[in-house]
Design a protein around this nucleic acid. Structure first.
Lengths: 159, 159
DNA sequence: GGTGAAACTTCTAATAA
DNA sequence: TTATTAGAAGTTTCACC
């Protein structure tokens, strides 16, 4: 990957788009005192460079009937099975995140489910995967912080 | 909050917006064989109902210089300090997610940092918070799965 | 690189069905 | 609730800095 250096204007464009991806480029242009065409070109470049990977809605999972979150630590029989196990885990759409980790666990997952009964089913699915020796579940009682935008603003102000 | 029931069309609108929030409403309208005005009205309603909480860019953190991810489990001296400790944690922008959990830990955090040196600073900040007795860090070697869109598509197809 | 204007497309609100 | 419509607004391209 070619090194791509963002400048102050790029940062400010990202900073505005992060809060609202549908903000008109003309609004961004006005605030930064540049033309809408420039905003357009820069956004396209950042997309091509892979800095902007895409956009997504933030939805209220609770209102969609998915109010259960758990983190599941996975112990493997043998780390050589990591790739295979991750492929199996990837078949479960309720596992939204999985990391290979150091420390206590070999793999660490985030699970979203409708309720405890549904979560039980998902955890059993995980336990059933060949190569998984044991799992350990931490149930979220409350998601108190969830704010990647704050981090992005911090990153952009570091300049 | 008033109960808000999404129908098939709402689901399909969300399903398309999740993949690309800047897709023109006219494109959505064409695919669903409804008018763009209808799409507009429905999106606005879902925003007002709080189902759509906002939109955000998916950025490549590595390219922004933040390639380090860790999960940190927090042990409190006493659960009565939970609220106070979360307020302190919330002051650290590098902690992007925090949950109150059952199981091993009292609080569970996700940390994003530039590198191991930066992560050390952040973890020391956590350890320094009054009421935190001890922390346990799991370093991510690789984020193998990160796909909430897949879950959303699954939810919308459950209808 | 950036601009500004033109051509094109989309949005949005009001009205009508 | 949905469709139509028309003026307002946004996007994108391109010739020219």
């Amino acid at each position: 990957m070619a090194k791509y250096k963002l400048d102050e204007i790029d940062h400010q464009i990202l900073d505005m788009l992060i809060d609202n991806t549908r903000i008109p480029f003309t609004d961004i242009a006005k605030k930064l005192v540049i033309s809408a065409g420039t905003v357009h070109v820069r956004v396209k470049k950042m997309e091509e460079a892979g800095i902007i990977q895409g956009s997504s809605l933030t939805l209220d999972y609770k209102k969609l009937g998915y109010s259960f979150i758990a983190y599941v630590g996975v112990f493997l029989n043998n780390t050589s099975q990591t790739k295979f196990v991750l492929e199996r885990i990837n078949e479960i759409p309720y596992v939204t995140v999985a990391h290979i980790t150091t420390g206590k666990f070999n793999i660490f997952c985030k699970v979203r489910a409708k309720d405890t009964a549904h979560a039980k089913d998902i955890i059993f699915m995980l336990d059933d995967i060949d190569g998984i020796y044991r799992t350990e579940t931490m149930i979220s009682l409350e998601e108190s912080i969830n704010d990647k935008k704050r981090l992005m603003h911090t990153i952009f102000n570091e300049l």
